[in-house]
């Protein structure tokens, strides 16, 4: 797999800092961090715990606001968006895949996949057809009306990936997406990410496992809220 050529910038951080107050001390989870993610890239974010990985992911996902600096999604500055506008941005431009799948227990597979569209101001008319296609794409066409509790961990994570794709997001954010899965299932999920990457999706995968990071196109290393380095993986998927 070759490195993708420089595409349009989908997410850009400019001198972003995120400061938490812990008692009397301030903790800088992100410290004057600048970075740009381009269309079609597959990044792994690595770093020890406390390095700012999660904070970076939250900022990228518009779940958390920078204390200072600017974050742009497809050129749109987020600092002056209100809560509703941020929610709207999430439902249109972002896809989330979590470590613990985070499906909604009272909904079946199809309904879970449809959730992001449900919250769009102007949902597409072909939403359900799209969800069915995605369910098929992740290999769950015959499980459409099962509840999450009736699925294995790997199947649940496939549903979550389909859900992250349903709104055709600019950026897919995955947080330790294989952390709860056994090796075999992890490989299957990673293969799915590879395929998505091949289709030109932009993916940011947070992990602390080097094996997993090695599957990404590039690795971004964080330490103490700062960029430690960038590694370009020469390895090609088996």
């Amino acid at each position: 797999m070759s490195l993708s050529q420089a595409g349009e910038i989908v997410a850009e951080l400019e001198n972003v800092s995120r400061v938490y107050r812990m008692g009397s001390a301030n903790v800088r989870a992100l410290d004057d961090f600048s970075f740009a993610f381009r269309r079609g890239e597959f990044w792994a974010v690595m770093g020890s715990s406390g390095s700012g990985k999660s904070t970076l992911l939250n900022v990228l996902g518009c779940l958390d606001r920078p204390s200072s600096g600017q974050y742009r999604v497809r050129g749109t500055p987020t600092s002056d968006l209100d809560d509703d506008e941020l929610s709207d941005l999430r439902s249109r431009e972002l896809g989330f895949v979590f470590q613990s799948y985070n499906l909604i227990p009272q909904l079946d597979v199809l309904e879970n996949i449809l959730v992001p569209l449900f919250y769009q101001d102007d949902p597409p008319a072909d939403g359900e057809a799209r969800a069915r296609r995605l369910a098929e794409r992740v290999g769950l066409a015959d499980r459409l009306h099962h509840r999450p509790t009736e699925l294995s961990g790997g199947q649940q994570q496939r549903v979550a990936i389909a859900r992250a794709l349903v709104n055709d997001p600019a950026l897919i954010l995955a947080d330790e997406a294989t952390g709860n899965l056994d090796t075999q299932t992890s490989l299957e999920i990673l293969k799915l990410f590879d395929e998505l990457h091949a289709e030109g999706k932009t993916i940011v995968l947070v992990t602390h496992e080097p094996d997993i990071a090695a599957r990404a196109e590039r690795v971004l290393r964080l330490r103490d809220g700062r960029l430690e380095g960038v590694v370009e993986n020469r390895l090609v998927a088996p």
Binding site: G61, L63, D83, D84, S87, D88, R90, S91, R92, L94, F96, F98, N102, L103, I104, V115, P116, Y119, Q120, R163, N167
Partner: peptide
């Protein structure tokens, strides 16, 4: 939290 992350507004 999940619903908010997936784009649910407060209302």
């Amino acid at each position: 939290g999940i619903r908010r992350a997936l784009g649910a507004k407060r209302r």
